[in-house]
Structure formats: structure tokens, C-alpha cells
Amino acid sequence: MPPRLNILSIPRAIAFRPRAPVSVWRNERVIRISPSLSLCRNFADSKDPPAVDKSQNRDAQPLPHVSEEAAETAEIMGLEGPDIEQGTPVEEIVKGDKEAQDKLPKVIKDSIKSSAPKGSRSFSTSAFRPQDLELVEMEAPPPPPVMLGIKFGLPALPIPSDAHLKYRYDPVVKQVTNLLMRHGKLSIAQRNMSLILTHLRTSPPPTINPARPLIPGAPPPSHLPLNPILYLTLAIDSVAPLLRIRSQKGAAGGGVALQIPVPLGLRQRRRTAVEWILTAATKRKNRGSGKGGFAQRVAEELVAVVEGKSSVWERRNAIHKLGVAARANLNLRRR
């Protein structure tokens, strides 16, 4: 009689979703400013691994690429190692290593076995490199045709859909300004926004708390005061919650609402974060008098957020914790 319990089989299906690529994060402004600090893993031909400049401790520094390691070893031993300028094929790396060869995927094992080039590959394995591109002589673009009666030339077509006055300002600044507005007084909100950005520019650079990590790709704190809009964006995006909890009545039974985590869009996330920050700012004490008091408090709260001192972080963590707990309530149907 076979055992009724099969230990090796998985009792139920595990919902596994691969992590989304990092490039999903949409604020390109931050990424553009510090490409070297982005989360993306570097390619084999890049000069330095991402964390090289961060750590002074030699042991903490990441290992170099396999080819670079081999090159270094070869240099120490006085031999000629692999060329680092080019990527090393997998076949070469595992050439002497029997154990590694056994663990290779089947496709590569097959390709190693049939080592003779067949020349009938259905796909291309050659990669373009920027150096190769440079070698190609580009022809100068043809001069634009001279048009009589047009002073500034024709615009490049197609005109982007957001190339009009409704999208004139930075989206974050515009959204925060509108959230600052009370009683429909936009001009006062705009003045407050200007005062907030001025405060961010004139206050000393923030000291980052490592326990409260900002979004990856954030520039060093010394760069922030000179780019107050980035400072504002960073503060808001760092504390923005990823989800909200929707209470669905009657779904749990017994009069208890079922709490269901719902993912938020970018604008929704920012909106929630700004509302939390504004709530925290209204609870601060007004030190001065006159018109700019509220703006001052909001700006101080933003600095506190970046420094990790703000109470908004606790709110965010609470929501995320609740979201993790309520994950069981999700009913993901298979399609």
C-alpha cells in the first residue's frame, strides 16, 4: 500500500510572482540624475560594480566579475588571463569545472556537447557595442528645407500629447499645490508652495537615517537643497504607501468587514503621502507669525520625512503591515 502522505509534493499551489523589473518605477527624473546609483545590476563590461564607491571596508566590497577575477589571478601568477574588454562565454568559464558543468541548464549542456559550430542558428548571438557603432560613418542629416514665411521653423511632429499649458509645471509640484489649496484659493497655495521650496533650498542638507531608507536611486543629500523639486518628490515618494486597505462589508461573515489590500497608482500614492504630511504639519507648533507659518511647518515636516524623523513613516509601516496580514484575504482567481 503506498503511503497516503506524499512529503515531496507541495500541498497547495504557491502563488509566486517574479519581482517586477526595477525600471517600472516611473519617476525618471531621479534615475536620470544619478544613473550610477540605480539599483540595476551592472553588466559584465561596466567598469565598477555599483557598491564599490560606497564601502571602505575591503571585505564588504562585492566580488568582481568572474572574468575580472580570473584576469586578476592570472596577473598575479604572471599568466595571460581573459580579455576583460569582452564578455566571457559560459562555456569558457565552466571548461575545467566538472561540477559546474553538471549544474548547467540542459540547453547549454547540449550546446557544449555539440561543440562544432553548425552555422544554422535561427537566432543571432552577436551584441552591438557602442564602440562598434562609432565606427560606422554616419551621414550628416539633410539640411532642413528652407520655408519662406516661417520665422521659427515648424514644430517636430507628432506634437506630444502633454505639450500644452495644462502640463506646464512639474506634476508633483502641481499636485502638491492643489492639495495645499484651501477654500479654492490657488494663488495662496502657490505662494505657500514657493515658500516651501525656498525653505528646502535654504535649509542645511538633511542627514539620512539608514533605518528609514529612501527610494533607491536617491541622490546624495548634499545634492538635494539645490534641486528643491527633487527634494520634495523624494520626500513624498519615499513615504508614499504602496497600497490601501479596503474594508469590504459582509465578505468575512458575522458582521465583520473583510480587509482587502488594494494597490495604489502613482498619483494616488503621492496624494496619500501628501495628505499624511499635511496632517503632521498642522499638528506642529507655529513658531512665527504672519503669512508663511503653515508653509514653514510643511517644509519642516518634509525635511523630517527625509531625515526619517517624521511620524508619517509609522503610518506607512502600519499600512504595509496591515496589507501583509490582509494578503490572505485576497481572492486571486486563475484565468
Binding site: T202, P204, P225, K285, R287, G288, S289
Partner: peptide, 23 residues
């Protein structure tokens, strides 16, 4: 909390700052 001293809030409002260390 501690009350602001007389004139302290006005002084903050009228404060002249002539330097920005970030610039």
C-alpha cells in the same frame, strides 16, 4: 508648551537672512 517671548514671533517674521549656505 512654552509661550513665545514678547516680540519673538515678529522678530522671526522680520528676520533678514543674507546668506544661503547651499548656494
Amino acid at each position: 508648551g512654552k509661550r513665545p517671548a514678547p516680540g519673538e514671533r515678529k522678530a522671526l517674521r522680520k528676520r533678514i537672512v543674507l546668506s544661503n549656505i547651499n548656494a
